[in-house]
């Protein structure tokens, strides 16, 4: 029993940290997209471009790390069925958000106005909404963000 406790405290999952980074970037993209839409000042489109690219790349890394930490390391909490369903739903929402964000990233590789308006800002808004919903669901279900990985 003592051994178990040590394991749970020393082996915290790292994917929630990555998820927070990716989520911040993807929410930021919506903000900079909106400013570009209002100002047509290209520097805001450049900001968006970096944010969405970082959000997408770190986002997919997060999913891979999360899958390893949740399944490969076999969290004890997943033995509880309701938690497993909730976590799966959250993960699915994250994957959908990332697919949309990936398309958004490609839209942002266009040049000037149409890299953002209209499809860039629409996709960024959809991604931001999904990120917020996912964050809220993670909080009330306490999963997957709060899962401790046990050895």
């Amino acid at each position: 029993m003592i051994q178990d406790n040590i394991d749970t405290t020393t082996r915290q999952p790292i994917y929630p940290l990555l998820a927070a980074f990716a989520a911040s970037c993807l929410l930021g993209t919506l903000a900079t997209d909106i400013v570009y839409w209002w100002t047509a000042d290209i520097i805001w489109a450049d900001f968006s471009d970096w944010l969405v690219s970082a959000g997408v790349i770190v986002g997919w890394v997060t999913v891979i790390v999360a899958l390893i930490e949740i399944f490969a390391l076999r969290s004890a909490r997943f033995r509880q069925r309701s938690r497993a369903y909730a976590s799966a739903m959250v993960l699915a929402l994250i994957v959908i958000a990332l697919i949309l964000a990936t398309i958004d990233m490609l839209v942002h590789t266009r040049d000037a106005w149409t890299s953002v308006v209209p499809w860039g800002v629409i996709l960024s808004a959809a991604v931001a909404a999904l990120v917020l919903v996912t964050a809220y669901l993670s909080r009330i279900t306490d999963a997957p963000a709060a899962i401790e990985v046990t050895g």
Partner: peptide
């Protein structure tokens, strides 16, 4: 079980 519920989504 987890994998099954994930699959459709």
């Amino acid at each position: 079980m987890v994998r099954q519920s994930l699959r459709p989504l």
